[in-house]
Design a protein around this nucleic acid. Sequence first.
DNA 1: ATGACAGCGCATAACG
DNA 2: CGTTATGCGC
DNA 3: GTCAT
Length: 346
Amino acid sequence: MVTNEDVVRTLERIADLLEIRGENVYKVRAYRQAAVQVENLGESIADVAAGEGGLVSLAGFGPAIAEKVSDLLQSGRLAFLEELEAEVPPTLLALCALPGVGPRTAALLWREAGITRLEELDAAAHSGTLQGIPRLGAKSIERIVAALDSQRDRGAKTRRARADVQPIVDELTGVLRALPEAAMVEAAGSFRRRRESIGDLDIVVATATPSKVLVAFSALPQVERVLMCGDTKSSVEVASGFQVDCRAVSVAQFGAAMQYFTGSQAHNVRLRGRALRMGLTLNEYGVFRLDGGERIAGATEEDVYAALGLRWIPPEQREDRGEIEAAVIDDVALAGAAVQTVLPRI
DNA sequence: ATGACAGCGCATAACG
DNA sequence: CGTTATGCGC
DNA sequence: GTCAT
């Protein structure tokens, strides 16, 4: 019995391996998007495969992916994935899990130094074997060593339970709110969406003096390591390697930034698509007209959703499970049911 | 058939 | 040295 | 690789 979860894992694995192989980014994305669709599917994918229209009736499923998933459902195996794993060592995926090491770097380490495993990378980083590899300077090697150390410290635990993150949120937002430069401070990301499992924490701060806030944030006693600190954002690690990002934005951008960094990614992609069809564009700075670029929203989340013809959507619903359609402010409906069926809905 | 699919901030290495 | 290219992460 | 055109 192949579950939806099995299919999701398989599609994501294919995407990761294709990425290391250097495949077209949109092909990689297609597999990831198909995985998200299965994740959000309210029924068994086996039923969909057997039902009217088959797998290609799912959004993000074309002939190629439908065929592969069909193979998997029928036989419990996928020859395509097995061939891919024979070509690209799957142990490279563990390298990509290191912050700062992505698919390109994993491929580089594999190609230039024959490294496919974490232990090999660790040994090579300390023995000096990595020196001389193009694109890997002293700083990069140092960062890899630090990432390996950090991973060892926290025992490879990558995500935290919400209950463990709550006190970190309270503490950090409390300290930031005490800064006179910080006009508004809110946690965003999956924490704000009230997910049970949190990968990292995003804090958005509205301020007229971003650098002051970010420098103060990076210097907090809770911070064990500063990953980066620029003019608009800072990334740090607090207790045992938990990553916290701080974004400094203007008061006028605060709502757009909160919306953007609260996600989910799938929710944002769908909102962006809706914006485009309305002749608008949406990003972390606001909602803008495509022609002329005039800004029409951004100070509050309500403004942002309203500019897209939507009611404000509670963060915990922002998972691309139909919440956007449900939030449409349908003023056409006021004109009568007959009109609704004629006018294309945006 | 063919083009779009988001795009930007940051760090680092390579380049001139 | 300043500028540009690349990879990463979101 | 998928979707809209």
